[in-house]
Design a protein around this nucleic acid. Structure first.
Lengths: 327, 327
DNA sequence: TTGAAAGCGCTAACAA
DNA sequence: TTGTTAGCGCTTTCAA
């Protein structure tokens, strides 16, 4: 079939073991090393990773399962993770569940079968709870959505505090009738809701919260219903990019102009958020730092498997856009 | 270490070969099959894919290398490919080059080392030409960007015709001074440029084409320069999503309103294209079909390695948005 | 239909 | 430093 280590050995006039040592990090005399390297080039030899992994009993592969690869948050995250992995001479297996718990389960099985070194997982909303009860042959670092405390290491942002920043931003610009639309499936949305309610209370303002299925359509419809019920609504906080999109599309359909008739704020600094009206204020997550932190936690966990589980909470950054609202 | 096929065999009171046959598709008597399946469940056995691949000499894995995973085109594509692969009981290894030819080269090596079954590749602009000269141990299907004809199977859209559709759309709405901004690195952009020039000529209109680095910044700057030079510009055709974004941001910065002062059209039906002004007319690529076609070509190629290379050209779909322009 | 035995391509242990 | 040997976990002959 294809060219193997023995062919290289023969070409270089050495044993297979010597070739293996040159490719890895064994000590080989300079002249033999040269010969082997020449033979590798001459033959076009590419090591067989399956054989290598089987024999050496480690895959040098970390898994990265995200819930929505189209979300710029995860795109950037995968970049950061891949960069860190590459530096440690590790491969990354990237899988996208599309928020589908069955695909998540499938990928988790596959990760086991691949005997990965470690996993960075952004669980689906359904999966987050379930994962805490399972056990794996490798360390798992949860990101974005936290599970029950104590099962795995975690990196998240301070969702409640971030929601508070958004409310403060709106209040400072004169808004009083601030609605909140939140996804009804994720723990992240729940934390953001908490922060929203607390911040509103701190200003003596009544909350108008609505939980919806995390789709643009559901969010848009919910927003329309809110507008019909309460004419005095002057701002909306959306708990994620998709919900934000739904609100923006719905308000556009209703002929509302931003920020004249309405201010909208949300999470995730997506491309289009500064194209709409005078721009939409959002919380930007420190994506690269989340990725690096997750990798750091993973390495520490691999080094010391018996450390107690840790949760690292990073802060979101408020990106302010849009004009001050006339009083 | 972890639990292996021999442990299952012992638990079921059969040989390892029988377990293997149950897991694969050998013929095993019903009662033994039941015993083995029970033992698999009882032990929580997960086969070791490295061992399986090494022994069986096929990886049941197809590679998918894309140039920009953040681009919705590739996000959807990977979905389609993954679905088709899953049905054929194949894994997908998804890699993102970020338009970096070095990462592309690295991934190509990795694919060889993984002994993948086949590769679907959206090459970087630099890579497209180079790939035609390399040879691989597996079939390669090129998508999105064509290489020199005849080296590999390919799936593309009719870029020239799509550009023509965009020009026709603009002309029909009364536009005459139509600029075109194209990426200066990709064969795709070159084809789109050709179509633009031909369509303009067909209407007796002079082309105003500009080639730029494929970034939003470069495109925005180029657009501004064009506006300064030619005040009568009333429409712009952008050769991809990033260039479109740059033009939209720049026109916003210059206080131009769409479609009052300017119409913008482009490629890739990204989320935000219907949020801007009255909406942006774009060519939507038949992404799912591209993915399915690529997989179909791959399967055929695996079945008949000596077929002559084929090029499948699909049509883009015009998504018309924005109000008719006052005459 | 089943089991015993060989071996996929590589690395690690052991000798020299 | 180098070669020989064994064996990673599985599938696939080959015999029974």
């Amino acid at each position: 079939m294809s060219i193997g280590i023995k062919d290289v050995a023969k070409a270089a006039g050495v044993s297979a073991a010597t070739v293996s040592r040159v490719l890895g990090s064994g000590s080989v005399s300079p002249d033999l090393r040269d010969k082997v390297e020449a033979a590798v080039r001459a033959t076009g030899y590419r090591p067989n990773l399956s054989a290598r992994r089987l024999r050496s009993q480690h895959s040098r592969t970390i898994g990265l399962i995200v819930s929505d690869i189209a979300n710029p948050f995860f795109t950037e995250l995968s970049r950061a993770v891949e960069m860190a992995a590459h530096q440690a001479d590790l491969r990354v297996m990237l899988c996208n569940t599309d928020e589908n718990p069955e695909r998540e389960a499938l990928y988790l099985e596959m990760m086991q079968e691949e005997r990965i070194t470690g996993l960075i997982l952004a669980p689906t909303s359904v999966g987050a709870a379930r994962i805490a009860t399972m056990d794996f042959d490798f360390p798992v670092i949860l990101i974005d959505r936290a599970g029950p405390l104590g099962a795995h290491d975690e990196v998240t942002i301070d969702n409640a505090e971030s929601a508070r920043l958004l409310v403060e931003h709106l209040v400072a610009r004169g808004h009083r009738h601030i609605a909140g639309i939140f996804g009804n499936t994720s723990s992240t949305a729940a934390a953001r809701h908490e922060g929203y309610v607390a911040a509103m209370a701190a200003h003596g303002l009544p909350p108008h919260a609505q939980f919806v299925a995390p789709t643009a359509e559901a969010a848009g419809a919910a927003f329309m219903r809110m507008v019909e019920r309460s004419l005095r609504l002057d701002a909306v906080l959306a708990s994620n990019g998709l919900i934000l999109l739904g609100v923006v599309k719905a308000s556009k359909a209703m002929g509302l102009e931003m920020p004249r008739d309405l201010s909208v704020v949300g999470f995730d600094n997506e491309t289009w958020t500064d194209l709409v009206g005078a721009g939409i204020t959002v919380i930007e997550q420190p994506v690269a730092e989340i990725g690096r932190t997750a990798m750091a936690l993973l390495f520490e966990r691999l080094a010391c498997p018996h450390l107690p589980p840790r949760r690292v909470v990073l802060s979101g950054r408020l990106v302010e856009r849009g004009m001050p609202r006339p009083a």
